[in-house]
Write a protein that binds this DNA or RNA. Structure first.
Lengths: 134, 134
DNA sequence: GATAAACCTTGCCACTGTGTCAAGGTCAAG
DNA sequence: CTTGACCTTGACACAGTGGCAAGGTTTATC
């Protein structure tokens, strides 16, 4: 199966398949006589695994970890869970950050006249000089 | 004021100040005879504005917009609010995405035995073949 | 069998935003 | 005047992804 078919079957773009190969996340596949990459169903299965992990926000490095656990028949489920839990912590930190931004902005937007006049608390906040007294 | 002082005074690193200049977010400052960038208090004020906008997650492109509104005495507050509201929508979309990832993962981790055995619903989910019936 | 369309190959550039490092010039304090 | 702290430019890196270009291949159509 050439890269186009593998991309379609796995949901990972051809471009990204080549990228994952370049960063050694997946092994280089065999090549046809004319140099085309040739993927097996097993390869596509792996790509689908990667696609799912990406959609859950795992980084390439985390996927490296997950893939080796996946391929290790003697893994401990606790090890997998540890990777997942760490990622959950990362996600939660990120969510918190974004929510703080959102809340601050929503608060400012709430106090904006929202009309043709130039006075705007949003810009005022951004331009505010940091002063010792506040 | 040279770039180091301006960085310290504004909270934007020297590196990023040069970057913002390179992408035309801020104008190139005057130079001393020896070629050092020379910033005014006004420049630092602008940098502080940028620093605050960045901390609220605005992109460089959005800041370009905000800066020109800020510097336009005849702006309409509604225009500023529109930029902010769009960013809020973007933030909320991102938050939703991350929360979905988090929830999926938390659910999977919850069902993980978390022991030395290899069976793990997290890996099983990632490896699951997509089938018409589910 | 020829030709055209659709695909593959590699390689390079772009983006965001930030860090680091190097080689060389400059300034300030001792 | 020397030393150390700073400035300058330039380059490379990161994560992932998109795009383009020039060239080879395969497939389908005539």
């Amino acid at each position: 199966m050439n890269i186009g078919k593998a991309a379609e079957a796995s949901g990972v773009s051809a471009k990204m398949i080549r990228y994952y190969e370049a960063v050694d996340l997946i092994p280089a596949p065999v090549r046809t006589q004319s140099g085309y990459r040739d993927y097996s169903d097993r390869d596509v299965h792996t790509l689908r695994f990667i696609q799912r992990a990406r959609s859950l926000g795992f980084t390439v490095e985390q996927m490296r970890n997950l893939l080796s656990l996946w391929q290790d028949r003697h893994r401990a489920s606790a090890d997998v869970r540890k990777v997942a839990m760490q990622h959950i912590v990362d996600l939660e930190r990120k969510i918190d950050e974004l929510q703080q931004m959102r809340n601050t902005l929503a608060h400012l937007a709430d106090h904006c006249q929202n009309d043709g006049r130039p006075d705007c608390p949003i810009l005022e906040e951004l331009a505010r000089a940091p002063c010792a007294g506040s």
